[in-house]
């Protein structure tokens, strides 16, 4: 089988005496969606920040295509973050430029990559807005005039326009109404399959993980307590914490 796209080895990070990550290791393979689940405070978001190079671990290392990201230098890491990588924030306002039109938001990564043709940037923005089910006629509107679900879809379009290989998603459906969540999850599911994306999905939503992820990793207090095939972890959970997590959700 192919080599992992992203690997973490023994990541440990403590804030004061509080461990946010304790010896976390994982592999993400090309075209794979890996969900990281757990309650708030379990270290999921910290893990995502460390894996994407936005925070440094005290121990352990992160390898992207076999290369230690700590040794890459900030310039190379930033280049990755705006081209081969994408980061979808829970709050779309953290991932969008609210004073820039929807089309400008989608075009920014293209412009950062050196595209200098206004017409081509417009065409790409139009295509991506349609792909995330936003009427391209709204291309020149500010994101503040969009609903929460539309803003999140705009953030996804803005992230995917450069065809990243790896996308980090932090609770992408977190702040949305349930009816809007389903649509967004389905949209993400389709895009991931069509583009062959590798995704690290942080979520506390078991249903989202079941729908999107092939594998799942359960975190509690900074540690990975269980991991495996999504269906098996959810149908046949072994760790007491996973059983609690699954039973609390599926009871509904």
């Amino acid at each position: 089988m192919s080599a992992p796209l992203l690997s973490a080895e023994g990541l440990t990070l403590r804030f004061g005496r509080v461990p946010a990550l304790l010896g976390v290791s994982l592999d993400l393979f090309p075209g794979e969606v890996l969900a990281i689940v757990g309650e708030s405070g379990s270290g999921k978001t910290t893990l995502l920040r460390v894996l994407s190079g936005q925070a440094a671990p005290q121990e352990g290392r992160v390898l992207y295509r076999g290369q230690d990201i700590a040794a890459m230098g900030e310039a190379a890491l930033r280049r990755l973050l705006r081209s081969e990588w994408g980061y979808v924030h829970q709050n779309p306002r953290d991932g969008l430029r609210m004073s820039v039109s929807a089309g400008g938001n989608v075009g920014e990564r293209l412009m950062a990559a050196g595209v200098r043709h206004y017409g081509r940037i417009r065409a790409a923005a139009r295509e991506w807005l349609a792909r995330v089910e936003i009427d391209p006629a709204r291309m020149d509107d500010l994101p503040g005039t969009f609903s929460g679900g539309m803003q999140q879809r705009l953030q996804i379009a803005r992230t995917l326009v450069t065809h990243p290989a790896l996308v980090f998603m932090d609770e992408p459906t977190g702040g949305l109404d349930v009816s809007v969540q389903a649509r967004l999850l389905d949209l993400i599911r389709g895009l991931v399959a069509d583009l062959g994306l590798s995704v690290l999905l942080v979520t506390h939503d078991i249903a989202a993980a079941r729908l999107l992820a092939g594998r799942i990793l359960v975190m509690r207090r900074g540690e990975v307590v269980e991991q495996g095939l999504t269906e098996r972890v959810l149908e046949d959970p072994q760790h007491p914490y996973t059983q609690l997590l699954v039973s609390s959700v599926l009871a509904a």
């Binding site: 900030e74 310039a75 089309g103 990559a113 020149d140």
Partner: peptide
């Protein structure tokens, strides 16, 4: 980092 995409975005917005 010579990361100037943002400036280009402003010019894009001007044309819009």
């Amino acid at each position: 980092l010579a990361d100037y995409g943002l400036m280009q975005v402003r010019l894009y917005e001007d044309i819009v």
